[in-house]
Write a protein that binds this DNA or RNA. Sequence first.
DNA 1: ATGGCCTCCTGTATGC
DNA 2: TGCATACAGGAGGCCA
Length: 277
Amino acid sequence: MPELPEVEVICQGLRPHLTNRLITGIRCSGKPLRHPVPHAAMDELLCGQTIRTVERRAKYLLIATEDETLLIIHLGMTGNLGLFPHSTPVKVHDHVRWQLDNGLELRLNDSRRFGAVWLLPPEQARNREIEFFANTGPEPFSSLCTPAHFMALARKRQQPIKTFLMDSKVVAGIGNIYANEALMAAGIHPTRPACTLLEHDWQRLIPLIRRILTQAIGCGGSTISDFINASGEQGYFQMHFQVYGRKNQPCHQCGSPIEKIQISGRATYFCPICQQG
DNA sequence: ATGGCCTCCTGTATGC
DNA sequence: TGCATACAGGAGGCCA
């Protein structure tokens, strides 16, 4: 899926096109995504509303209207959002289309249908951190992301640090790619038990997580197979991967072959020489 | 409470 | 070429 950088790139790309646009109609394929698409609720609460803000929280895109109704979109593994003229032929896996008053429509295309769409009425939307994001950890860039935060949650966690970083209850937005890359940058072995990281480890790791996410956003995200931004352009951060997808290729730091293992069922890449910490 | 496994679904790559 | 199998950016549920 799009991880935090890819959702941020889509969010920034869509914002100028969606802000102050009127939603005039909603079309659905009828196929469920992760959950049934709330078509009727969107017809009732979203149609005729003007979009005021477009934001990101974790890997979710948040689109709020003038009366503070909140449309929440998650892209799962293969979800893509793009703007197209109404007349553009609908593609296979175009599951939701939000029609706008300027002849364009926002289309959610998702072949695997692991994505999801929710609609929160104004009251719930105002309390979204409690109503919807109660189990979502702080943003990586938030001042809440301190060594103390991570150490408190990791205190009894024997699980691998990589799995811990990917736990959205711990910190939002870090998926498989950026967990791999951040641990490489910090020289930390991905299987190291989370509870064994000391304060100075977190003091090093947290800024590296932020740096990598920032660089990825600056590159327009990472395009592995099918990620494209809202304008249909690819991202280029994959050119900067140090470990992800580089099994048996030489480490850019020391030249030894990058190894690939499974951790909690997820592909994990690391340099056995550079990541002994 | 913790951690590992499985599932949702489709497309693509790989191997026989 | 054709078919079977493995694997892929997420995340939540279930079970030990």
